[in-house]
Amino acid sequence: MNLRRYMICGAIGLAAFSCTPRQEINYMKDIESVALDNSIKNSRSTLQPGDQLIISVSAKDMDVVKPFNQNYSSSTTITQYSMPSSNNLPQQLPVSGPTYMVDTDWNINFPQIGKVVAKDETVESLKTKLVDLISKYVKDPAVDIKLVNFKISILGEVSRPGTYVIPDGNTTLPAALGLAGDLTPFGIRKNVLIVRNVDGKFTQERVDLTSAQFFNSPYYYLRQNDLIYVEPNEVREKAARIDPNTGLYISVASVIASIALGVLALTKK
């Protein structure tokens, strides 16, 4: 009887040890009560030094805009996003066109026009600026701009941590977490850290994903080279400190206990 009592107590202890405390995993519970108008002003990030742009100019007469499409590069392939913790291959996206790099002074050197200041410009506003400049030489030009090296890093308690390249240069925090396979059950949703480099200075912000208030945060829309870190909860931290062979020990103990109970049952007969 004593042995059986010990075995029952041990089983209860193992069950209690394996249970994960319930935590809040809902997102944006109060979204209906939050005004989202303020988020519009943060919907586009400004260009930064090192941004790689593919800029194409078109018009009814394509021969007229040929001088504005110099520096044309052959078709290249970029990685749309990487998934180092997944067995799936990264998606590939072929892109081609005249390529320009925003230099350390926030300028690009555009053919026929010369230096164009890109500081404080978004992709859309730079497009408008180039249309205005080219309109001095060409009637009704159209400009297309792609930001092809927009990268973010997602680390911590997500399903697929890694560095992701966003071809259109525009993404939100929820969308980025979706690329990473969402948070694991062990991720703290009320304290997600975002580290951002603004003009050479690092800033950081803590975001509560369970509240729709973060829609109004300047960190809702991500920017070039943002780093997102999801902290583990106490359960994960405690598990990391446990001997990795604990599961093996428990399995062996269970087998020994089963054998002992069998022997005890036979001896009673």
Rank of each mutant, 00 (worst) to 15 (best):
K127S: 14
K129F: 11
I154Q: 06
T171N: 04
K190E: 15
F186V: 02
I154K: 05
P161S: 06
A176D: 00
I166C: 02
A118E: 04
V198H: 07
E121K: 14
D144K: 12
G169C: 08
D120N: 15
E124W: 12
N191C: 06
E205A: 12
V165N: 12
A176G: 04
E157N: 08
I145P: 00
D199T: 09
V192F: 03
I188K: 00
D144C: 01
I194P: 01
R196C: 06
N149V: 07
K129G: 01
A118I: 06
P185S: 09
P141S: 11
G156W: 08
N170Y: 03
V192H: 04
S135G: 12
V123L: 15
L179F: 08
V195F: 08
E121V: 03
A180Y: 03
S153Q: 00
K136P: 03
A142R: 06
P167T: 00
V198A: 11
A180D: 02
D132P: 07
I154S: 04
G162Y: 01
R189W: 07
N149S: 08
V198Y: 10
N197I: 09
K127L: 10
G200T: 06
K129Q: 13
T184W: 04
P174W: 05
K136T: 13
Y164T: 01
S135T: 13
P167E: 05
L179A: 03
P167N: 08
Y164A: 00
F202L: 13
E157V: 05
D168N: 14
I188V: 12
A142V: 05
K151A: 11
I152P: 07
V165R: 09
K127A: 11
I152F: 01
P167I: 00
T171A: 07
N149L: 10
L177E: 04
L133H: 11
G156R: 03
L193P: 08
K129Y: 10
Y137V: 11
K151R: 15
I152N: 00
L179S: 01
N191S: 13
V198M: 11
D120I: 11
L173P: 05
T163Q: 02
T172Q: 05
Y164P: 01
E124C: 09
G178E: 09
L193R: 10
N170M: 10
K190D: 15
I134Y: 04
I166V: 15
S159A: 15
D132T: 15
P174F: 04
K119V: 04
L179V: 04
Y164W: 02
R160C: 02
K127E: 14
Q204P: 05
V123C: 07
